[in-house]
Write a protein that binds this DNA or RNA. Structure first.
Lengths: 238, 238
DNA sequence: TACGCAATTGACAATTGTGTAAGCAACCAC
DNA sequence: GTGGTTGCTTACACAATTGTCAATTGCGTA
């Protein structure tokens, strides 16, 4: 994603300046990769309105027809974009979950990572665009992704939940925690800036980090101390 | 918003079927209202791609030129839409905060209301569309909106924080809580369905309610019991 | 070197959405 | 009624995009 992103801005700067250059020929695979990279960059920075074949083509230095050649039609490009993003996302989050020494990953650390991927790096916006766009029912790829994560995390949680004599955490509680973290990360990635503005706060990296840290402590606290109370209260209600 | 929404679907069903009807003439105000209603319905259900002047015109039974007459251009329509939505949102949330008898509103209740407006009723999607669309820096209207809310809520919180001998909650903690609730409500409204799918849960109203309730208890618990611990821990960190 | 596959191009067609201008027609005031 | 204001319409100009197709050319291979 890095290589082509630079070129996007470059091309943006000095217009269509690939005049004298000879026609370059990529492998099909490489072409698809470059196109997806450029499309991703445009999508996160400009929204779906910015996803125009001609522009993407200019970014990677080919005509829009070439893109159609590789992806059949615009829909095909969007679909490919969606699956690739989902796969990358999943891989990175799973990677963040495994500590090198097999110890319990700290909630704050994991949350930090999730936020970094979803919020800071723009995946949330990308996913939002793709999700909010109706008519695409499919996206089967991301299905069960969070379920898997939940299993992994709950396993860890039960494993490390201390030698205390209190009850082990309920699976549903873990599921809720995971869902909450994901929801917050997406919400922050999509609306975070606007919300902070509306809160009269500035949107500096430091401010974002403070909020993330606070949230991390909240979750950590819930999982460390409060979960038995919470689950007890949970059970008492209808 | 209700009156015209029905007509949207109607028109969707039986095509452009306003043939024999005479030309109707509304007041400028009424016309604007109807147009905004239809636009809002389209925006929340179809995304910004569905915001086409011709379609909106067909929904309310006028030509697309009439819309341009009322809003100057498409931009004007979108701006009007944004301000109106922000105002309504603010009004409803403030209304939810004031209990009839002046007692402390329960966190769960307020959260429920916020979710209902933002998530269930589609305001989150609408706001997301409008926010994610770049190039519009303005939206000054919503500025400070959450700040105001935070002040109101913090006031309530300090007022009712029990006669305990513990410290009163920090203002920053309240700000974080408000920001978190807003973030979750937006995140849920925008990505909630997709996330629940990815979690292998079904997206029934009951399931949504369960999650909201769990989250409400988490927040309530934080504000009731844990805030002194949390803020202490907060202060101890850099 | 010659050949052929497939990536790439360039021109063009077709569609669709925004915006303009001039005229028509409700409704109000007199 | 008569006239004026203005909501609304029809027709058209215009731009931007996706998609098609034949032609071109880079590059591995026989």
């Amino acid at each position: 994603m890095s290589e082509t992103v630079g070129r996007v801005l470059e091309a943006e700067r000095d217009g269509d300046q690939r005049s004298g250059r000879k026609r370059i020929r990529r492998t099909s695979e490489e072409a698809r990769r470059q196109i997806l990279d450029a499309a991703e960059a445009r999508l996160t920075s400009l929204g779906p309105e910015g996803l125009r074949l001609q522009d993407i083509g200019r970014d990677v230095g080919m005509s829009h027809s070439a893109i159609l050649h590789h992806f059949e039609n615009r829909e095909g490009l969007v679909k490919a974009l969606a699956s690739r993003a989902a796969e990358q996302l999943k891989a990175e989050v799973l990677a963040a979950l495994s500590t090198p020494d097999g110890s319990a990953p700290e909630a704050g650390q994991v949350i930090e990572k999730v936020f970094e991927i979803l919020s800071e790096r723009g995946y949330a916006r990308l996913a939002a665009w793709l999700t909010l766009e109706p008519r695409r029912e499919n996206r089967r790829h991301s299905r069960q992704m969070i379920a898997e994560l939940t299993r992994v995390i709950h396993e860890l949680r039960v494993q490390h939940h201390g030698d205390a004599d209190r009850d082990p955490p309920l699976e549903e509680d873990t599921a809720n925690v995971v869902l909450l973290v994901a929801t917050v990360a997406y919400g922050d990635g999509i609306m975070g800036k606007a919300l902070r503005m509306a809160a009269g706060r500035d949107d500096t990296p430091a401010a974002r980090a403070r909020f993330r840290a606070w949230f991390g402590r909240l979750i950590q606290g819930h999982m460390d101390d409060c979960f038995d109370q919470a689950s007890a209260r949970d059970a008492s209600k209808p």
